[in-house]
């Protein structure tokens, strides 16, 4: 059992905490945008004579940006899971699916299909149910 004191998500401070966690979650989803950008740059690179397909030099730049986002996220997330229960952190991370959905439509022009959206909402409800199981 751990003895570290956890912050409570209540009042204006709690609201700020949620905002901070959501910003971290958004950062996490931006790293996914970079991953998609890296993956959708077709081509190949040659490393030590080995052909690696799927990552063009332009893709590599996106990959670098992704790692940068991930690094920044790492610093923030480590502080978040230190201060809050994993369940609270993960409850907020549930919203990542909506952030990703927004980016997919706005940036990659993926279609908004009602039944797929229902699937996403069911997944979201499932994640919230899992994370509402707090002692």
């Amino acid at each position: 059992m751990e003895n570290t004191k956890k912050h409570e998500i209540k009042g204006p401070k709690g609201l700020l905490s949620i905002l901070a966690i959501q910003l971290a979650v958004m950062l996490y989803t931006v790293s996914s945008v970079c991953a998609k950008m890296a993956g959708t740059h077709p081509g190949s690179i040659r490393i030590f004579g080995m052909e690696i397909s799927g990552l063009s030099p332009a893709g590599i730049r996106w990959l670098f940006l992704e790692v940068l986002c991930l690094g920044l996220y790492a610093v923030v997330w480590q502080q978040i899971i230190k201060r809050y229960d994993l369940s609270i952190a993960y409850a907020n991370r549930a919203f990542a699916i909506f952030w990703t959905f927004i980016w997919s439509v706005l940036i990659f022009h993926e279609p908004v299909k009602p039944l797929r959206l229902i699937g996403i909402i069911i997944v979201f409800c499932g994640i919230m149910t899992v994370n509402s199981d707090v002692e």
Partner: peptide, 27 residues
Amino acid sequence: LMVVGMLLCVLGYARNVSMQSGSVMES
């Protein structure tokens, strides 16, 4: 390990997986 996971996602996206499908499966 997280970076390894991210690289797998890039590979998935390179194989035409949509961002919506990827994020739903990641859940």
